[in-house]
Nucleic acid binder design. Structure first.
Lengths: 345, 345
DNA sequence: CGCATACTGCAAAACGCTTTGCGCATCACA
DNA sequence: TGTGATGCGCAAAGCGTTTTGCAGTATGCG
């Protein structure tokens, strides 16, 4: 008797509950919302019926009338990516705590069509506001700008310079770069390369700037945050006989790809080359040797983004809302160390 | 002039478009839906205005009237988990191709409150149907059953015996177990242990049964699919002096945890112990030594689930819809091999 | 010229809910 | 008993769409 055989049974309406209880819909509505007192006996009877029928008010009708859906959206480049998954997790936690629903959507790495679709979700009032996570240089920047003009939007993970008036949540990227740079510098390294993320991202720019406080001339290559690109870029460096004793990864994945490539070239980590990542993904502590990295609290990015958005929503304005910058932390493990004498050198 | 300063501007209504074009809303509506012919000139004028105003029809009102939202939901235990992220990715792809929207929600490992919330999303008609992914033994099984009674539900990844009439999508788990078992058997191993997933899951039961075709007496321990539990369970085995030369992981993460623990105990992989995983996560090919595993096409699970659901939705019934079982594939890498003489033995 | 036959557009009725304006009891207090 | 306050329920007016029944204007054809 599942849907298999019995299609779309009509759900109960509030009117039917009212009829069954012998009252008007007004009374049922007030019983549910508590916005006006209702005779305790009547209320009890109504509540019983609601339970019995399994009645749930229609979301669309409710929204239509009240103007709010108590739903927010989260747009990320790719939900299957660990990093964005964590953000989603955090946002969902916070939304839940504040009694909002969260709708997660992938823009498939900023596919303009998808982005438009999600921006429209706030336009169609399906959601009350949007947390947007830029994956790279934005395609539909203008669209975002337009949406933000009249609806609440918060930027997670990446601030966008042009859109400076939109609240955002991110990590101390510059400081993270500094921490990594200082650590490697102290180990005595002088020649370093940076496998950064997308060049257009603030986070990339800031991390690089932080590292360069200690390695002013470090070569910067830009990858796409995937393991493979770390692998490939180190391959390019080796093929060009670039000399370096330290590699900074724009994230852990690229750092891990780099390590793989270094090893295949017969280089030892950390004896010959020190490698430092960024993020502290779960796997970082498991690979051999365990990865030295800069930990950021990705879940918190999600949590705070959702919080900012919902607070703005309830307040009706972002006036006075200030962006959030979360602390990072250097985690020293086994891929960083002083230069060891090369047995072959 | 962002939302920061200018709260909730009212969106345009169809009436306003109609007024501006000097026609009635009927004409505007028909222009948009194409359900009745409209004078080309009038239509053009209306379309121009729609673009100019940036008008988008209200989703709630539309749903209220038409009865369908063209949105489906996907409930997974934890969106930040790689595995479920892949499923979400696949479902989202397919939904997009079929011009549906997808709403992804975490049940936070079957938190009853959350589950209820998502089941209610289909009750409130916010979504037209639901793809449900069980993470472990289900808590709100009865709820699911009730929902499935009147609304389209598809099970992804895990079939549920009691709910055999609900369509489901999964991998050839039994065959996967057999492949792994046969491979390890051929390498000459005779003593194996299985670090399985949750005991209550069909997939776990089937994989174990497949392996046991070749290792009838293999000890089975149940983990939670996380790396740590693979690590811990192997620790228990070692502490109890259990003798084995092969470990089957219920997934790659647990296999990787197991390897870590084995190494810490001074055992070599694969010389002393062969380890085989399940899934073929990205990291499996990167760790050293690279992991031998059974590959399943997780994205396809998501894709097919969404497809089944939407097809049922459009057809108005699941009559004739048959469940999907996807093929798996053994990927032999470096963690499996014949037993090598232990130098210390 | 007269009568079907499109072709277009309008008014109005839902859809299921929230909220407001009223009115009828009931009650307290003088 | 009169007066004001309070409690509680009803009817009805939207909210922004889609869809249906009608009607007015052309057009085609004998």
């Amino acid at each position: 008797m599942f849907f298999v055989t019995e299609p779309n049974t009509k759900p109960w309406t509030m009117q039917q509950i009212a009829d069954a209880a012998g009252v008007s819909v007004t009374t049922v509505s007030h019983t549910m919302s508590g916005k006006r007192p209702v005779n305790p006996q009547t209320a009890l009877r109504i509540k019983r019926l609601i339970d019995e029928f399994g009645y749930v008010p229609d979301a669309g009708a409710r929204r239509l009338q009240s103007g709010r859906s108590r739903m927010i959206g989260l747009a990320v480049p790719d939900i299957s990516n660990w990093y964005f998954g964590r953000i989603a997790r955090g946002a969902e936690e916070m939304a839940d705590e504040l009694d909002y629903g969260l709708i997660v959507c992938s823009t498939f790495n900023s596919d303009p069509r998808r982005e438009k679709r999600y921006f429209n979700m706030v336009r169609t009032r399906m959601i009350d506001g949007l947390v947007y996570t830029a994956g790279r240089e934005m395609n539909e920047m203008n669209e975002l700008e337009k949406v933000a003009l009249s609806s609440p939007v918060v930027l997670a993970d990446e601030g966008i310079n042009r859109l400076s008036s939109i609240p955002w949540v991110t990590s101390e990227n510059f400081e993270g770069g500094r921490l990594a740079g200082a650590h490697v510098r102290e180990l005595g390294h002088t020649k370093a390369v940076i496998i950064g993320g997308f060049a257009g991202l603030n986070s990339t720019v800031e991390r690089v700037a932080g590292i360069r406080e200690f390695f002013p001339n470090a070569l910067v290559l830009n990858g796409d945050f995937e393991m493979q690109s770390g692998y490939d870029l180190v391959g390019d460096l080796l093929a060009n006989d670039v000399r370096f004793t330290a590699v900074f990864g724009g994230n852990d994945l690229m750092a891990i790809g780099a390590i793989k490539r270094l090893r295949e070239a017969g280089l030892r980590v950390p004896e010959d080359v020190t490698v430092v990542g960024f993020d502290d993904v779960e796997i970082a502590s498991v690979i051999t040797p365990a990865l030295t990295t800069v930990r950021q609290d990705v879940v918190s990015i999600g949590r705070n983004s959702a919080r900012l958005l919902i607070e703005g929503l309830e307040a009706g304005t972002f006036e006075g809302t200030s962006s959030v910058i979360l602390p990072v932390q250097l985690v020293v493990r086994a891929t960083s160390g002083p230069l060891a004498p090369d047995p072959r050198r």
